[in-house]
Structure formats: structure tokens, C-alpha cells
Design a protein around this nucleic acid. Structure first.
Lengths: 249, 249
DNA sequence: GAGTGGTCTAGACCACACA
DNA sequence: GTGTGGTCTAGACCACTCT
């Protein structure tokens, strides 16, 4: 067979046609979830295209989350409908967290907490942890702190805390440097609260003023929980912005 | 040349070796941001691999956000460092927004607003819009509403609003059905507020109680702003959860 | 060993951007 | 027109999984 795209009534590439047919057939139930697609060779024969073209089509299905491929096994159907997937792309996790690069954490107190304690259990922290309480401020002693922080660090990595009790970079980044631990995922839980007296005092706000509370969980390679942070921001000068880009599909 | 991977001291595929070298060279400044990479043919010659292999390598760089490809032009260097990218994967945009599937929006009032008015300008809405005010409730007349809503719909798509002034699905989904408009991106802006009297009344809360305010902007194909929603939730029974998965890289 | 996906090649034509 | 990336083919060997 020559090359190019000679099909009738077709302006789209061949792999797209193959992909579309397969998407429709998966949606229609011809290939049930959990089952295997025909082999690449069989699909090539069926659609009269080369294996490379079949693979290009399957790549799209994979990106859509419809199938996964397993070496030596085949292409497994994972879902009947393409997932909606949105991505947050930023230059660094720090930027996503909206740490201005010129902020600094100042710890006021430090405590070691045993796994199983009520406090850790409430936060789903399964390991021993070091708890730091403090505030995040702009650099060079600005007026009011930006947020009130409680930080729990997995004891296995507690050496990222230096004696100075100040930190100009997030602890998970220190972990990456010192232990080679990379962040594999971040959970965020955002809610509004009424500032407690100690929050209000630390932030220079009126008691009972509204505040934004953000709990973040940082997970490492093996879904190990590395760090949990609780940030309380005064409502007045803080909002969280996220832009989610729809992925292909 | 035969096939396979005959290189010395190399267990990784050839495209990976090509990709690694290029990543290092981009990082090192050999190919400046904004400039073009050598053509695929030139790279194939340099690394002694076929063009298909070069393309596989460039595909990786593209996924890392290091380059973008422009048909007829070349491969443009976009960044010196791989971006951190986190994705939110959910079954639907509705789930991401944490609409329980059993909620319903009830509009109390409707108004047409001209582009350029102060209200629209404050929200960066460039077009005429229809403004709906109402609440989101659980189905079957539950107690208190879940949130107080203001919804601005681009006038060009206002026919998604039915006369009943109730909606069991998000309007952007109706747009997809009626106009074929797909959501390409979503902006979220989250802040804590003190409930205004009309919020408190609608939500059955004490005045001045804290609340979570979420402004969402829904963009269509051409970055056209389709819909803006403002949701105010009582602090007590609402928190926003997001899980961000680190992408490859 | 048999069968699957993973990688690779050489060569070809098409679609797009720019001069 | 010239040159780029986009798509496609036929055929090949490698790496993995299962029997």
C-alpha cells in the first residue's frame, strides 16, 4: 500500500479514524471494561493500517484514560468513558502553593508527637511526627504575618528542620535535597473558619474574623505521607487561585 | 543499519538517550529558550537514529513542557527546566466542582446585564450576560441550601436557561449539549468572607458567620468566557478537596 | 516456546509556513 | 518553491508474560 490518506470522506488521519471507532466501540460495550482489546496486529489487519498507525491510535486512547497497555499482555480496557482531566501547570510546587518566593516560616514552638495520638489520628498521620507551630511572614520583618501555620513533619525526615527555626524554602523541598524524596502528589482541603483567639492574635486580626484554612498533605514516592501543613489565612488579604487546564481528551 | 539497541553501556532505548542529551543541552543553554531545535532530520543524523526515533524523543520533551512543535516551522524551545505539572483527574468537571450529583440550582431572579457595566467589569466578563441569583440545594427540599449562587452566563448561550428556573445539571454542560461548546479550562478563586446579611438569610446562618466564596470561570474552545459562578458556602458544612497528582516528568 | 507490546529502520507522501 | 513537521508503510528484532 502506498502512503498518505486516500480514504473516502476522510480528512482526518488514519490513526484518528481508528481511535474514533475504538472509542465508540468501547463506549458501546463491545469491549468491556477489564477485558483486552484485540492485539495491535489484529487491529492493523482489521483497519488495513500498519502497526505503527494502530499504536498511534492506541496512544490516544491511553491518554484519554480508556485503556492501559501492559507489556507482554495487551491493551486493557480501563473505562467506558473518557475521563475529564484537568492539569495545574506551574513552575514549581511552591508556586502552586502560592508561596511568594519571598516568604519565610518562623517556628515558635516544636514538639515531638507519637503516632497514634489523637492529634495525629485526626489528621490521618500514621507515623511519628514533629509538630512546628509558627507563622509565615514576608521577608524583612513586615507588619502582620501572612498566615498562621502548623506543620507536621514525618519523623523519618525531621532533620530537615534546622536549629534556627526559620525556613525560607518549604520543607518538602529540603526533603528532596537531603533525602532524594520527590513529591508524587498533594492533597488540599480548603475551608472557611472563624479565627480562634490564638489565630487572631498571631495574625493581628479581630477575634471571630473569618479565615481561610488550608490543609495540605504531601506524599512521596510510595504514597508515604511526608508532611502535613495547616495554614490559616486572614480573609482580608488572601485568596487562593488555581487554573485548571483541560487535558486533550 | 539493523535494528535493536546495540549501543555500548546503554540499557535504555535510543529515544531516551536522545531525549536525555537534549534535555541536558537545553538546561545548559546550548539551545536558548525561544529558539529552534535542529530539525528532526539533523538530529537523526547527529545521533545516528531514524527520524521516528527522534520524534519519539521530542515527544518526551514536549510532554515535559520543554519544547513545542509548530507544523512547518520546527521545534521551539519553551523552557530551560521541566515544569512541575500536577493533574486533577476526575470523572467529570461536575465531580471536580463537588456538585454532588443530587443537587439542584434554583434561581430566584434573573436579569440581563450589559457588557461594560461595573458589575461585569469587576468580574472581567467582556460580554453581555444573564445573571441568575439563587441557591443550590440538595434534591427533595432538604433543609438549608448548600450554597448561595450568583451565575453569569454569556448572553450568546443564554438559551441554556430554561423557564423553570431550576437546573439539575451545570449550565456549562447544557452548553456542551446545545452548542457543542466544550470546556477548555476552569479558573478558581477561593477566599473566606464574612457572610453578608442576604447570604446569611438565604443559608440559614447567623449574620457575620464565616463563609467560603468560590468564583469559577469556565472557558470554552477559543478561551471564550462562557460562564462565571460565585458560590458562597457556609463554613460549617463545606470544605473543598482537591488531589493533585504529579505528572511524569 | 509462543505471543504480546516496545523499539527501530528506511523510505515515502502530505500539509503547513514562509519567502 | 523550499523546507519543516505530520503521517504512513513493511519489515525487523527485543523484552516481557504466560504456559
Amino acid at each position: 500500500m502506498a502512503s498518505g490518506n486516500n480514504d473516502i470522506a476522510s480528512k482526518q488521519p488514519r490513526y484518528a479514524r481508528v481511535a474514533n471507532v475504538l472509542v465508540r466501540e468501547i463506549k458501546g460495550g463491545r469491549f468491556p471494561v477489564g477485558g483486552l482489546l484485540p492485539t495491535e496486529a489484529q487491529l492493523g489487519e482489521r483497519f488495513n493500517v500498519s502497526r505503527v498507525t494502530v499504536r498511534e491510535a492506541l496512544r490516544r486512547l491511553e491518554e484519554m484514560g480508556l485503556i492501559s497497555k501492559v507489556h507482554g499482555i495487551g491493551s486493557r480496557v480501563e473505562a467506558q468513558e473518557a475521563r475529564d482531566s484537568y492539569s495545574v501547570s506551574v513552575d514549581s510546587a511552591a508556586e502552586m502553593m502560592q508561596y511568594a518566593s519571598e516568604t519565610e516560616f518562623i517556628a515558635w514552638s516544636r514538639a515531638d508527637i507519637q503516632a497514634g495520638s489523637a492529634e495525629l489520628a485526626a489528621l490521618d498521620i500514621p507515623t511519628d511526627a514533629v509538630k512546628l507551630i509558627g507563622v509565615r511572614t514576608g521577608l524583612e520583618g513586615q507588619k502582620a504575618p501572612l498566615s498562621y501555620c502548623e506543620i507536621f513533619i514525618n519523623s523519618a525526615y525531621s532533620s530537615v528542620i534546622d536549629e534556627e527555626n526559620r525556613a525560607r524554602e518549604p520543607y518538602y523541598r529540603s526533603m528532596a535535597r537531603l533525602y532524594g524524596q520527590r513529591i508524587s502528589g498533594i492533597g488540599q482541603e480548603i475551608s472557611a473558619i472563624r479565627l480562634a483567639p490564638h489565630h487572631a492574635k498571631a495574625l493581628g486580626q479581630a477575634p471571630d474574623a473569618p479565615g481561610l484554612k488550608i490543609i495540605r498533605r504531601f506524599y512521596g514516592e510510595d504514597r508515604e505521607l511526608l508532611e502535613v501543613t495547616i495554614n490559616v489565612h486572614p480573609a482580608e488579604n488572601f485568596s487562593l487561585r488555581l487554573f485548571l487546564n483541560k487535558n486533550d481528551v
